[in-house]
Amino acid sequence: MKLIKANKERLSFQIDKKEKRALFSLLKLYPLMPAGYQRLSRSEAKSEDQELLDEALTTQRLENKRQVLAMMKAKSRFRVNKNGYRFSIKPAQLEWLLQVLNDIRLGSWLSLGSPDGAVEMFAALSEQNAPYFWAMDMAGQFQMILLHALTGEGSTQADSPPSTSREH
């Protein structure tokens, strides 16, 4: 996927068929973060406020899911051209797409057993959890392309996959 045009109203990417298939396969996984995983406080016991936060995040995820499904259905979002598709999105929509992709990335990481680094991750890899490894890596690659498109930094194409050194 490559950024081909960006202005305040819209960002347009060239995306080929394989990439589009990969993106859609990823988006179908959303949401992957377990409900109730996020805590409002580390020091305080679960409270009414925590329940409100859980509700707010659940509502947010439902809304994101609705938008994801609408995006996947909208033919105008992916216009066919000779090299695949022209994928267009507004900057504000790109923010929720980043949220969705990071949910998939973190949810995959949790499903892999929250490994600390690449060595631990590969050690824990099995036939059963391999799809999560794929999802985590792929979501990261799409995130970096979208981020660079938003910030206008780097090249307009993700030349290399994000390395673990860029992670926290």
Partner: peptide, 17 residues
Amino acid sequence: WNDPVNFMDLVTHVFQT
């Protein structure tokens, strides 16, 4: 809090946003 999975660029972007 730190975690080993979020990208530095993403965290910076989220703080800005």
